[in-house]
Each structure stands twice: as C-alpha cells, then as structure tokens.
C-alpha cells in the first residue's frame, strides 16, 4: 500500500516543490557540524559584527560568533522543536476531535466548547504570558505552544469524524457487534488520516513561526543556544546596519514554512482526489 501513497505524492507539483525546498534544511539538520568548521559558541571578540565574507559566510554577531554556524546548529533545534510540538498537538487534537465526533451528546458539546474556549484566547498573548512567567525552560515553552496549537486539528477531525460516523459501513459494523475501539481504529481513523496528516504538516510551519516569535521577543530559547528565533532576536537592535544577523534566519524561516505549506496544500489535493 506504500506505493499507493508515494507515487501520487511525487506526481503532485505542490508536494514536489515543497519537498525540494525543505530537503536542504532536513539535510542541514542532520549533518550539522559536518557543514561548517566554526562552532556556534566560539566567541571571537576581535571580530564582532563583521559583514559576510569568505571566512564568515553570514558574518558574525555581537560576540564574534559565526552566524552561519549558528544558523546550521539552530536548524536542528528549531526543526526538532517544531516537529515535536506538532506531533503532540496533532495527537491531542485528533484524540479530542475523534472522541467528540463519534460520541455525540454531552461529551461532544463539552469538548467542542473547550476547543472554542482555547481558540478564543488571543493565542500569542497567552503564549507570551505563560512564557514570560516560565521563560527559563524551553521544554515548558514547548508545552505551552502545544497547549495552544491543538484546536484547529480538533475542529477539523471533529467534523470529519461526525461525517464518517454516519456512514453506512459504520452502522453496519455496529450492527455486527464490532467494539467501539475497533470502530475508532479501523473505520474512523483511516478516513480521517488524510486531514490529520495535512493538518500536521501545516502545524509544523505554524509552530516554527510561533517559536521564532517567542525567541525573537526573548522569551523562548535562551542565549547562548542558537535557534532561528534567537538569531532573529539579535538583529533587532540594528536591523539595517547589521542586516546579516536577522536576514538569513528570516529567510530560513520563510523558506521552510513556505515549503511545508506547499506540501500541506499538495496533500490536501491528494486526499480530496481520493475522496472523489
């Protein structure tokens, strides 16, 4: 069944383009230190704020650290965090959406109102608030991001679950005495798998932006650890003069998120075609 997925995946233009865009970043994240001879933490106070050159491809920062190296090492951190947060948020959202959608009644209403409440929070504000209280721990920051990212997935999964729950084959299975658990895993889950995967892909991009925003404001990942967000943060004081501090990190974020969104769009197209 694997080839049933990969063949159409590679044939879809959006998926192909998106993959091409994020592949370099994945390679960078894996290979890290092999790509640069500078270390991200090595300070060189004699060479602070140097513009990009042959020796320092992306210049140096306020402490003379090589920006390119920091970018390379930051990639793994940013991507890992984003991936991890997206996985958790998607899991939570799928679980809540599925249970609400297939149970109906009071549980459905309670869970969906809960989702609405969370959605109603001005998300960035809530994250900032929480992060500013506990800003020393990147893991806590991650948890807070997850806590405010599961709702869209829950909504979408809820709608699809309700739909498939009315399907004839689900009714037939109930008549045959199939257990509730089996119906969820073998009947509902395969149907919603498409939206879950699409939602997950798009969520990674969202989390990257949220994390970068937090770090940009000094609340997420802390110095001296390098992430794309912290790099953005450094360029805050002199965005034009020392442009290389933010620009490259910013470009990475834009490219990665665009690539992920393209893949997400492509996946959406694929799953809709299958539905037809």
């Amino acid at each position: 069944m694997k080839s049933v997925f990969w063949h159409p995946f590679f044939r879809n233009k959006n998926c192909r383009t998106g993959l091409v865009i994020i592949l370099p970043f994945l390679i960078i994240a894996i290979m890290q230190g092999a790509l640069t001879r500078h270390a991200p933490d090595t300070q060189n106070l004699s060479m602070t704020l140097a513009a990009p050159s042959a020796r320092h491809l992306c210049g140096t920062d306020y402490f003379g650290r090589d920006v390119f190296a920091r970018l390379i090492f930051g990639t793994r951190l940013t991507l890992a965090m984003a991936f991890g947060a997206a996985v958790l948020a998607t899991l939570i959202g799928t679980l809540i959406g599925m249970i609400a959608g297939t149970t109906g009644g009071l549980i459905d209403r309670v869970l969906m109102r809960l989702t609405d409440v969370f959605l109603g929070f001005p998300r960035l504000f809530a994250i900032l608030l929480c992060a500013s209280i506990w800003h020393n721990s990147p893991w806590l920051t991650l948890q807070i991001i997850v806590a405010f990212s599961w709702m869209e997935t829950a909504r979408v999964v809820h709608a699809e679950s309700m739909l498939v729950n009315q399907a004839l084959y689900v009714k037939a299975a109930q008549g045959l005495g199939v257990s509730r658990f089996r119906i969820l895993t073998a009947y509902i889950l395969p149907y919603i798998a498409g939206v879950v995967v699409t939602s997950f892909t798009l969520l990674i991009g969202t989390v990257i932006i949220v994390e970068s925003g937090l770090s940009f404001l000094g609340l997420g990942v802390q110095e001296p650890t390098a992430s794309w967000g912290t790099l953005l943060n450094q360029g805050r004081q002199d965005p034009v003069g020392a442009w290389w501090l933010s620009a490259f990190a910013g470009a990475c974020i834009v490219l990665t998120v665009t690539g992920l969104n393209l893949i997400g769009d492509g996946l959406k197209q694929l799953f809709e075609e299958r539905r037809m």
């Binding site: 399907a167 004839l168 084959y169 009714k171 037939a172 299975a173 008549g175 045959l176 005495g177 257990s179 509730r180 073998a186 009947y187 395969p190 149907y191």
Partner: peptide, 24 residues
C-alpha cells in the same frame, strides 16, 4: 441491543458497497 455482540436480526442494506469498509 447489547454492545459487543452481533445482533440476532441482521440487516443487509440496499447500498451494499456503502456498507463495506473501504479500508478492510
């Protein structure tokens, strides 16, 4: 009907294709 056990009265739906799980 008790859950977990097949019902003693079984129904074969008009839409036979729709009554089969496409993933099984």
């Amino acid at each position: 009907q008790a859950r977990g056990a097949p019902r003693k009265i079984q129904l074969i739906f008009q839409d036979a294709g729709g009554a089969l799980n496409p993933h099984l």
